[in-house]
Simulated scan of single mutants.
Amino acid sequence: MKQELKWIKAIKKRSSESAANQLIAKYYKEMYGFIYKQTIDQELAKDITQEIFISALKTIHLFNGKASFRTWLYKIANSRLIDYYRSKSYKQSQKTDVMDEVEIRTEESFTIKLEQKEEVDQVLQILAQFDQQNQYILRLKIFGEYTFAEIAEITNLTESTVKTKYYATIRKLKQLLKEGAFHAKFK
């Protein structure tokens, strides 16, 4: 933590490239994993992860240390994911769904991977309709693997409020997924 603060200070004062590289190296895999779990697309996850760090470095002067740098990165990551799932490029990719670049090892593994991606996409499409705070709580819990206590600290909410919002969002998400599955059968 002390080293991390030294890097941040060096970036703020001297625009230290070395400190920026070390800070990025410390969190890159974690941020990439967080994004990949929600996109199931390596290239897209790399692109969004890169955007997270570009944004973090451009706005590092706004980082005040009230929350940890890690927490601050997750807030940026959540914003980037919300932006992506609301973007025209995401909506267009859902319509065209080009499969040219998919590497097919076996028909069975390809089918399983495709089904998983479709399920994650469906969940994330529905999740994008929720307010940002509920999305953030759900993403931190499921994809970031944070505890309720950690999420409460990050969001400045009580732990019971976080739990209530999380479970209410899960219930609503399940309901919407069920309705979607029901409607899909009759379309």
Rank of each mutant, 00 (worst) to 15 (best):
Lys37Ala: 03
Val98Met: 10
Tyr74Pro: 00
Ala152Ser: 11
Gln42Ser: 12
Arg105Ala: 08
Asp41Met: 09
Thr71Asn: 10
Lys13Tyr: 06
Glu107Met: 12
Ser160Arg: 15
Arg80Tyr: 02
Ile52Trp: 00
Phe130Asn: 05
Asp131Trp: 04
Leu173Met: 11
Phe53Asp: 01
Glu115Tyr: 08
Val162Glu: 03
Glu30Pro: 00
Ala77Cys: 05
Thr59Pro: 01
Leu62Ile: 07
Glu159Cys: 13
Lys75Pro: 03
Glu150Ser: 13
Leu127Trp: 01
Lys141Tyr: 14
Lys9Gln: 11
Glu159Arg: 15
Glu51Tyr: 03
Ile137Tyr: 02
Tyr36Met: 06
Asn78Ile: 08
Arg14Met: 09
Phe186Glu: 09
Ile126Cys: 03
Gln42Ala: 13
Asp100Ile: 14
Thr39Tyr: 01
Lys172Glu: 07
Leu176Thr: 09
Glu4Cys: 04
Phe63Ser: 04
Ala128Thr: 14
Val98Ser: 06
Ile40Thr: 06
Glu43Asn: 09
Leu23Lys: 00
Lys95Arg: 14
Leu114Ser: 10
Lys6Glu: 10
Thr71Ile: 09
Lys178Thr: 12
Phe182Glu: 14
Lys66Thr: 11
Lys178Ile: 14
Ile76Thr: 03
Lys9His: 08
Glu153His: 15
Ser89Gln: 13
Val123His: 03
Phe34Lys: 00
Ala184Leu: 13
Ser160Phe: 07
Ser109Val: 09
Phe34Asn: 00
Tyr74Arg: 00
Lys141Ile: 10
Asp100Trp: 09
Ile76Asp: 01
Leu81Ile: 11
Tyr74Val: 00
Thr39Gly: 00
Ala20His: 09
Glu145Val: 11
Gly33Trp: 00
Thr147Gly: 11
Asn78Lys: 06
Phe53Gln: 03
Leu62Tyr: 06
Thr111Arg: 15
Ser55Asn: 08
Ile60Trp: 06
Asn78Asp: 05
Gly33Thr: 02
Ser93Glu: 04
Phe69Cys: 03
Glu51Asp: 12
Ile170Asp: 04
Asp131Asn: 15
Lys117Gly: 07
Tyr146Asp: 04
Ser18Asp: 10
Thr59Lys: 13
Glu103Lys: 14
Arg139Cys: 04
Trp72Asp: 00
Leu44Ala: 04
Tyr166Leu: 14
Tyr136Lys: 11
Ser55Gly: 07
Lys29Ser: 09
His183Ile: 12
Tyr90Asn: 08
Asp41Glu: 12
Ile104Arg: 13
Ile126Met: 07
Leu57Glu: 03
Glu30Ala: 10
Ile60Pro: 02
Met1Gly: 12
Arg80Trp: 02
Leu57Asn: 05
Thr59His: 13
Asn21Cys: 11
Leu157Lys: 15
Glu119Ser: 14
Glu159Asn: 15
Lys113Gln: 11
Gln94His: 05
Lys174Ser: 11
Gln135Met: 08
Arg14Tyr: 09
Ala56Phe: 03
Glu118Gln: 15
Ile76Lys: 01
Tyr32Ala: 02
Leu62Phe: 07
Lys185Gln: 13
Lys29Val: 01
Lys88Phe: 05
Tyr146Cys: 07
Ile24Val: 05
Leu5Arg: 08
Ala149Thr: 14
Ile137His: 03
Leu5Ser: 07
Ile137Ser: 03
Ala20Ser: 12
Ala25Gly: 09
Thr169Tyr: 08
Glu115Arg: 15
Lys178Ala: 13
Leu138Ser: 05
Lys37Ile: 01
Arg14Ala: 08
His61Glu: 10
Arg70Tyr: 14
His183Asp: 10
Asp47Met: 01
Ala45Thr: 07
Ile40Met: 09
Leu127Ala: 05
Glu17Pro: 05
Phe69Lys: 03
Glu51Gly: 04
Phe53Gly: 02
Glu115Val: 11
